[in-house]
Amino acid sequence: MKKLPVSDITKLISGLCIEANVDLRPDLKKAISGALKREKSKSAKGVLRLLLENAAIASKNRIAICQDTGMAVVFMEIGQDVRLVGGSLKNAVNKGVKDGYKKGYLRKSVVRSPIVRENTKTNTPAILHTEIVRGKAVRVWVMPKGFGSENKSKIRMLNPSDGEKGIIDFVTRAVKEAGPEACPPFVLGVGIGGTFDHAAGLAKKALLRRIDKKNPDLRSRALEKKIMDKVNSLGIGPMGMGGKTTVFGVNILSSATHIAGLPVAVNINCHATRSAYGVL
């Protein structure tokens, strides 16, 4: 059995927090450049140029792409042939986030209680999702999630008869309501199926997929295209100032569900959709 000190996980997560917040994902950069070629309106082009310039300045100066460096969402796939040693996994993850946010001069945006709202000054606790999988690798994704877009995310328990049309209409309405506040062009994570909580989890996890990588599930891939076309016809555009590009990508994850239900969750992410990946 492979032994892995949890301190290695701390170190990895600390670095991933900085990388995710400072270096815009290559698929997003590509999407911005692509949209710049397609857009005709002067204001849309102007905003897209600013986004590229902003990403370049962040990378060069090693500062955050956006001041909202988010709540740190950590996804882990832990091989069942690994034994984690040297302390609690949860503490190790939180220490990694605390270290990374301090070292990277990232904003600490977490309050201890949603009602009392006292800043913890460490950006912890993080949100941790773990899954036990085959093998002896430990895979880690860090997703700093900003709340301008998180606040606009939605979930709905549709009826089975609502079908694809119901899903498309629900997502389109959510994007319309999100509007300029959530920093369009967006990336949409859409979770379909499972239970109430599972659909929301899938929507978040879907955001990890590079938007230039095709969905391996053909039905989902076709639905992604339909949603994308519909949403981009809204004309919200970059920064909500009008244009063809309201979303850069739609990522669907779906799962088995109950005979009576069709849960759909849409997790809206801004044009700075951030994540970084590492493996131990």
């Binding site: 600013l50 902003n54 300045i57 500062i63 301008g148 506040e181």
Partner: peptide
């Protein structure tokens, strides 16, 4: 700031002769 404002805010902007600017959203580094 960024994004839309309520009707009450807009009415107050008119009443007190103020102005609301938008800064490029998500361009904090720049």
């Amino acid at each position: 700031g960024k994004g839309r404002r309520s009707k009450e805010v807009k009415d107050s902007i008119i009443k007190y002769k103020a102005v609301y600017f938008l800064a490029p959203a998500g361009c904090g580094a720049l």
